[in-house]
């Protein structure tokens, strides 16, 4: 049942964990991504946020921003759930599960910055959120089209050379992940990363890049 489709892309399968019909598996590639997500989730749990220094321009004054306990707890919770979603997303063997986890990463990314009391950050988080929401359309659309044309959602089946996936589904999948995680208006996202709370804010970048890496692997293998 679990024969690896195309070993030249990601190497031999090292281990798999079946949950019903959704199988999580580790190949060298997904293992690298998984360990990286794990490392940064651990960092988010263990390290304290930084005290961001603000300079008052036109003078010598500067002050540090303390992050309130309540906000820190919320950000940490969101960062951890984002890390968990990423860990599951990079190892999953089911295309619909992958899209769901990508959408969850999008929600968590909004959540990480939502508690920051800064108008600019919130404005950009809102713009990013709108895009993330629209991004679910190509994302789920791609999964549905793949299901309709191949009759399966399992990546193990889809990766076999016999099964061909329409180009439009591949394109939609990439657009979906980019919209969900990487936010096409990257600059708005850069504005978001200005929010204080280093290990948590970094998680936004980690999760979206790892999901992108995974989707690159998926579309090349399909």
């Amino acid at each position: 049942m679990y024969n690896l489709p195309s070993p030249q892309i990601e190497g031999e399968i090292l281990a798999y964990i079946p949950f019903g019909d959704i199988v999580y598996y580790f190949s060298p590639y997904t293992l690298v991504l998984f360990i990286f997500a794990l490392t940064f989730t651990a960092l988010a749990i263990l390290s304290r946020p930084e005290k961001q220094v603000d300079i008052a321009f036109g003078g010598d004054a500067y002050y540090t921003k303390e992050i309130p306990e309540k906000q820190m707890r919320f950000q940490r919770f969101m960062a951890i759930s984002c890390g968990l979603a990423t860990m599951a997303g990079v190892t999953t063997g089911d295309i619909f599960n992958f899209t769901l986890l990508t959408a969850m990463v999008g929600i968590c990314n909004i959540g990480i910055v939502a508690s920051v009391k800064n108008k600019h950050v919130l404005d950009n988080a809102y713009e990013y959120g709108i895009l993330a929401m629209i991004g679910t359309l190509p994302l789920f659309g791609a999964a549905a089209i793949i299901l309709a044309t191949t009759g399966t959602l399992s990546l193990w089946e889809i990766f076999t050379p016999a099964v061909s996936v329409p180009v439009i589904a591949k394109a939609l999948l990439v657009i979906g992940v980019i919209g969900e995680g990487m936010a096409p208006v990257y600059v708005a996202k850069a504005e978001i990363t200005r929010a204080p709370g280093a290990p948590y804010v970094l998680m936004i970048h980690v999760s979206s890049l790892l999901m992108f890496l995974r989707v690159v692997e998926i579309i090349i293998s399909m």
Partner: peptide, 26 residues
């Protein structure tokens, strides 16, 4: 497909709620 609509709907609503909270906050 019927089984897939439900998670899709849940994700949509979750994002919608998150965004409306954000809007209220903002």
């Amino acid at each position: 497909a019927e089984a897939l609509i439900l998670p899709g709907l849940v994700v949509g609503i979750a994002e919608f709620l998150a965004l409306s909270e954000l809007y209220i906050e903002k």
